[in-house]
Design a protein around this nucleic acid. Structure first.
Lengths: 217, 217
DNA sequence: ATCCAACTAGTAATTAACTCA
DNA sequence: ATGAGTTAATTACTAGTTGGA
């Protein structure tokens, strides 16, 4: 096609995002010493590596000015209505089809970036909630200790009160509501055995600082 | 180029994953009634929509057999060493360059899928930890109630024990270690005022079932 | 130290399936 | 139901980076 006669180097490369995904330690690939350089491609007619300039279609990159305009337009509005498409087509000297394609691809790019952002905020929230949970565990431990202490003091300091009601009445009395939350998933913390000291951390530890990649489908 | 002489329809389209990302309620775009269909493209020489078959380069899709073989090979090993490349090139009747490009693109696809999976598992873990935290909050509440109850009973049932040490000594005594975790971020749950009944949920509620997308960069 | 072939990220363009008016 | 645009997936290309001989 050889759209756009102009040509400018390129836009700046953004940061290498998403790089932490490449932790496939599952396998090694140390070889790769590439012998046998056989001049690949004299088979289909010698038109292989560069596709000799048939005076059309070289997929030139868009100029910086064009990209700036497109990007500005995209920031204003992620979708492209026909009027804007035609206007941009005229202003930038590109085919309307090129404008449409650019917006398609730009939306796709935006979506993956969005997932990335979403992941980051979720991870942050996960860490916050994990810390809060840890604090609550500590507090539960502390309160249990205080209860034990008080109970023993009661039994020592006062000789009455034989087998009335000391501490074993945990989890049965409900001081407040909101105990219906535990309906799905495994009952991890259980929260019913007050003097069960080690809480069973279960899912707490991973912490997601350095991700682990199991396998690839 | 017209690589690969064979041709088969296409592979089945997978499920429309990542769709939940498209919640940009930030803006409307109701127009789009596309008037003025002006026969776009009679400007650059009428070579616009289909790129009249210049006996080369139509970007034919790979055949199902070729894709199956490539996919199998990729599952075995995500990287492509030269030997495998040449073998696949011979077996599938494709240029070595095509094999390499296919693997590059396949790796990129795998990476985004990987991020998706990572997000899902993180979200699951977040939900689990949120539930655990809720249970712990309930338990703390319950324990506090028990402590109050016991304290009042002590003061009523026994006349000795003037101002010794009732309940105000929370958060100061450390029954176990691991209280150093709270160093960054806001101290949400605080966990230091034992009789402060409503915990201040802060970050707990969002729950990420339906995501909210703020804006797009 | 240079070169070369692989890698990566980003981009352009095409195709098929979907949606909706 | 026909046809517009859209998404998702693909194919290919460009430019920059990296590691080994």
């Amino acid at each position: 096609m050889d759209w756009n006669g102009t040509f400018k180097p390129f836009v700046s490369r953004p940061q290498p995002s998403l790089n932490f995904l490449y932790n496939y330690d599952c396998d090694q690939f140390p070889g790769m010493e590439m012998k046998n350089r056989v001049l690949t491609g004299a088979a289909h007619g010698g038109l292989v590596p560069a596709m000799v300039d048939k005076n059309e279609q070289k997929k030139k990159p868009l100029s910086s000015d064009q990209l700036d305009s497109l990007e500005r337009s995209f920031q204003e509005e992620i979708k492209l209505d026909p009027d804007r498409k035609m206007r941009l087509s005229r202003e930038l000297g590109l085919q309307p089809r090129q404008i449409a394609v650019w917006f398609q691809n730009r939306r796709a790019r935006w979506k993956t970036k969005q997932l990335e952002r979403l992941y980051d905020t979720l991870k942050h929230d996960y860490d916050v909630v994990s810390r809060e949970k840890q604090k609550l565990q500590d507090e539960v431990m502390k309160l249990k200790g205080m209860l034990i202490e008080q109970a023993t003091r009661n039994q020592v300091g006062s000789t009455e009160m034989s087998g009335e009601e000391t501490i074993e009445s945990t989890s049965v009395g409900t001081p407040n509501k909101a105990t219906v939350v535990a309906n799905s998933e495994q009952p991890v913390g259980e929260c019913n055995y007050v003097f069960n000291v080690e809480y069973n951390p279960a899912v707490s530890s991973p912490y997601w600082g350095t991700v682990q990649l199991p396998c690839y489908p």
